[in-house]
Every structure is written in C-alpha cells, then in structure tokens.
Nucleic acid binder design. Structure first.
Length: 505
RNA sequence: GGUCCUGUGGCCGAGUGGCUAGGCAGAGCUCUGCAAAAGCUUCUACAGCGGUUCGAAUCCGCUCGGGACCUCCA
C-alpha cells in the first residue's frame, strides 16, 4: 500500500516515488504579504500542512519550503505598472518593510492559530534578489529573454518552439495551447515593450516613484511575478524536486511560467508532482479580492464581519477544510461552519471518552495485525486500518474523518456502558487510542484546547457537589438553578450513567 | 470566445459500475426526578433526456444550470 498523489501535470493519480528514497522536497507558494490573509488563504496552508505531516509520518525527511512574497508585483498589466506594496505604503504612510512585517506577523499568527507546522525554510523574495538576477542573466544568455528599456521579458514563443521538442511545451501544466492564446488578441495597453502577448516580465524597470528597487545589470528595478519561486525552489530544493503545491488559480500563469524559467536554467522541469488545491467559495463564487467577498481570518476568529453570525474557532475552520477533499471546491456558509463546529465538538468528546476507557497495557505499541476476538473488534479494526488507505489515496481527509465518526457511537456506548465492557478487546481499545491520536492530532493536526484550566474545574467541582447534595435532598429547585445558570453562561453539566457529573463548554 | 472543472437528500459534503459514506438539522424510542448528553431506529438523493451494460450517482452523448482559468489572485 503506497501513497498515490493526483498530479496536475499528468492529470492522473500516480504512485508517489521520491527522487531520493526517504527524502522529500516540498515547495508551496506562500502568501503575498501586502494584505491580511483571508479564509481562502487558509486552504492551501492547511492542505499542505497535512501533506507535510503525512509524508513525515511515512518516515520521510521532508524539507518544506514556503516562500513569503514581499516584493512588488504588478497591480494590473493594462494600467501603469505599480508595486502593490509600495502603493499601499504611500497610502498608509508606512515604510514598505513595515507593512511587509505587519502582514507577515499577522500571517504567522493565523498559521499558529490553525495549528499549521512551520515550514522548514520560509524564504523571502526580497532576500533572494541576487539569485533572481542570476537566473534572469542565464535566461538572457541562452536567448530566451530580451531587454527593453530596463525591463526583461521572457520569450515564450521561442521557448515553446525549442522546448516542445524536449517534451516541455509552454502549456504543459495548464493544458493551454500557445497558438490559441496568441490568437485571442485582446487589446491591452502598455504591451508595446513585449514582443508577444504571451511573454511575461522577469524584471521590471522601476519608475522614479517606486520605493522598492534594486540595482541590476538592466538598471534599477524589481523582479517579475514568477522568478522568485523558481529561484528559491532551485536554491533550497535543487534543480528537480518532488512536490510543488499551491492554489489552482496559480496553475496558470504562475506555475506554467515557473516551469519555463526553470527548464531554461536547469534543463528540466522543476517538480515531478504538482498539487493544486481548489478554491473556497462564498455563495458559489471564489473568495478573492477582485470579487470583494473576502472574510479575513482574524474576522472569522472574532466573528467581526457582517456576514458572520458568530465567531469561529480556528480548529473549526481547520476541521471544515479537512471535511472535504482538497481538490473540490468548498462553499462557505454560516450553516456549514456551524455544522462543523458541532461535529468537531462531538468528535472531541468522544476522543476524550476514548482516552478515559479503562485499559491495561496501554504503554505497549499495538500493531495493526491484531486478531479480532469479538464481532465488534472486527468492525473497529476495519475502520481503523482503512485510515491509512484513505490517506494514501491522495490525502482523502474527508474519508478519514467519516471513519472516525463511525467509531464515535462505539466509543460513547462503551463509556456509558450501553455496550458491555468486553464487547471490545482490550488490545483493540489500546490500538484505537493510539491510532486516533496519531490521525487526529499528528496527521490531521487537530488540536484540542481545554479552556478554563485547573481553577475553573475546581470551582465547577464545588458547584457540582452542592448540586449533588441538593439532589439527594430532592431539592430540585436548587439543583436545577445551578445547572440552568451555568448553562446560560455556556457551561453544560451532564449527569452520567454512573452517577458522576461532567461538564463541557 | 478559448481551455477545463462541476451539478448528490433541508444544508454541507464522500463516493473505485452491483453492497445505506460521514457531519449538521428533523422524527420516534431507551436511559433520566426533569433536562442535557449518549445509544438505538428512521424519513428526505444522485440536474434532465437518451445510450452502453445483466446492472450506472459512477462510463458515453446531448440539453440545462453553476464555477475556475485565460489579468493580481491561495
């Protein structure tokens, strides 16, 4: 049973074989820190966090590189080219790097809230200007780029003509046909510098008002959109690496251009497996700046947005994302998120209950080769062993969660003694404890935070005891008062079967 | 216009041609001083029309609807 990944490059599921056994190079396109991250941004980072966690779990040493784009891109090709970051800096009267720092910090904060593991290397575009210039020089030297007025453009047509023969036509990733693209000549202004409509900028000459600028062989300017990823992935992962990930909207032109740049410089396609996550939509529409329908992560966590009916915990968002397959669109709505919130709560309670089931020998690691003794053993073992299969099948987190949910009734019934204690063998319970911890916490990265802490629990135990005394005296007025008023504060008391009382928020 | 994806029950979403995914919501029952929780049972599906097949949500075609990319975008 081996890991199978859907490769956007071949449009097929393929068995994953790393270039070097036991080592995996993973590059994921990071955020542009000219603004705050929104819900849509959460998706790739959660998706690839799970990819990273799972590859690591499989025993690989993974180098996970996720860049920070802190150098300017073009706002809009048709209009005056301007550096997004420097433009906003002028408006806010901030230093560009101050703005970059602010949004980088906010991004890191959001990633931490979502319990995403930090990447191994998080390189910045501004920190790799030299590497980018070097790469551009190579491309010019090889004849695949030309200089006009201090800007450098990639010659797509020439590249396509030469590299098609080598099996790397321009459009190999996105399925686009260059000839078609050249025909659809949409009128665009300020295109006169380019020889061809499909050409893209490697370096842009900086107009005098530009704050972010670097010296280059072609004058002062700043790097083009795509070159940073090529430069940084090459530097940290080599000419050829295993997996390149990002949002589907980056497939073209960003990733297509990366392939072309790297192919010229390194004589091969940079990544062997390309993975693209689908979009988060809102009312069926992609969430994005251009649509003016974004909900920032900080707003989601605080509930401070007109669309939001309430605040949503970062783990609810993570769970919400994992409940669907990463290649499907995911539609946001309050209803959907509230369903996730309740589902996650149910999962946590069962998970807690599982941890409390009385077992012996729970320190011993139990293998999946357990022999089922009872009928229930067989069902449970089947559900547990399928978890690996699902993850191996292109990271089907939705199915993993579905199976875990199928275990919930069994766990709860054992805890409430609705099932006989021996319905499930001790070893199977231990195995389930170990396996669910592995999948829920380590692989899916769901983190349970017990709010309140020791003090609150002490206070509640006091109230629970007072209520118990009242109940013994059949003073239900007092007992109900305690329960109802706690409930109004959001704390639920539950009378358990064995006479004990538990609480949850 | 070009390229591609998609249409599943009240909502969200898995689905490899035959065997009820799962979550949320609804109904009934059990437990309980009452409640909550939990357990058990249960109702709502595969956009439409054809075709292939012994058999299709799953493959093919057409129609209708939705979306993405082609411009910064996760």
């Amino acid at each position: 049973m081996s890991l199978v990944i859907y490769n956007s490059l071949t449009r097929k599921k393929e068995t994953f074989v790393p270039l070097t056994q036991g080592y995996v190079g993973l590059y994921v396109c990071g955020p542009t820190v000219s603004g705050e991250s929104h819900l849509g941004h959460a998706r790739p980072y959660v998706t690839f966090d799970v990819v990273y966690r799972y590859l690591t779990h499989l025993g690989n040493k993974v180098r996970y590189v996720r860049n920070i784009t802190d150098a300017g891109h073009f706002e809009e090709e048709g209009r005056e080219a301007e550096d997004k970051i420097s433009k906003k800096a002028t408006l806010e009267k901030l230093e560009p790097m101050e703005l970059v720092q602010k949004y980088t910090n906010l991004f890191h904060w959001a990633m931490l809230q979502m319990n995403n593991v930090e990447p191994s290397i998080e390189p910045t575009a501004t920190g790799h200007i030299v590497e980018q210039i070097n790469m551009i020089e190579t491309i010019i030297k090889d004849g695949y780029a030309y200089v006009v007025n201090g800007s450098v453009y990639f010659d797509v047509e020439k590249y396509h003509a030469d590299f098609s023969k080598k099996g790397l036509p321009y459009g190999i990733l996105s399925g686009r046909v260059l000839e078609d693209m050249l025909e659809t000549t949409r009128e665009l202004d300020n295109q006169e510098e380019k020889r061809n409509r499909a050409d893209f900028a490697l370096w842009k000459n900086a107009p005098p008002e530009h704050i972010m600028r670097w010296k280059s062989p072609w004058g002062e300017g700043f790097p083009g959109w795509h070159i940073e990823c090529s430069a940084m992935s090459t530097k940290y992962l080599g000419d050829e690496f295993d997996i390149h990930g990002g949002g589907m909207d980056l497939q073209f032109p960003h990733h297509e251009c990366e392939i072309a740049q790297s192919a010229v410089c390194n004589h091969k396609s940079p990544a062997r497996y390309w993975m693209h996550n689908n979009m988060i939509t809102i009312n069926g529409r992609k969430m994005g700046k251009s649509y003016n329908n974004v909900i920032k992560l900080s707003e989601l966590f605080s509930g401070n947005h007109p669309i939001l009916e309430q605040a949503y915990h970062p783990m609810t968002i993570r769970f919400f994302i994992l409940q669907t397959h990463y290649r499907s669109t995911l539609d946001f709505s309050n209803e959907a998120l509230q369903a996730s919130e309740k589902g996650l709560k149910r999962l946590w309670e069962a998970y807690e209950n599982l941890g409390k089931l009385p077992v012996t020998n729970n320190q011993q690691p139990v293998t999946s080769n357990l022999k089922p003794v009872t009928e229930l053993d067989e069902t449970v073992l089947k559900l547990l062993n399928e978890l690996d299969e699902f993850m191996n099948d292109d990271f089907s987190t939705a199915k993993v969660l579905a199976n875990i949910f199928e275990l919930v009734p069994t766990i709860n019934a054992l805890k409430n003694k609705q099932l006989a204690a021996d319905a499930l063998s001790n070893d199977v319970i231990v195995f389930m404890q170990q396996k669910l911890k592995l999948f829920i916490e380590d692989i899916l990265g769901l983190k349970f935070e017990n709010s309140g802490g020791e003090h609150l629990d002490g206070v509640l135990q006091l109230l629970i005891n007072i209520r118990k005394e009242a109940k013994t005296k059949k003073d239900f007025v007092t007992s109900d008062k305690i329960r109802n008023e706690l409930s109004a504060m959001g704390i639920q008391l539950k009378d358990e079967k064995d006479g004990s009382v538990s609480w949850s928020i």
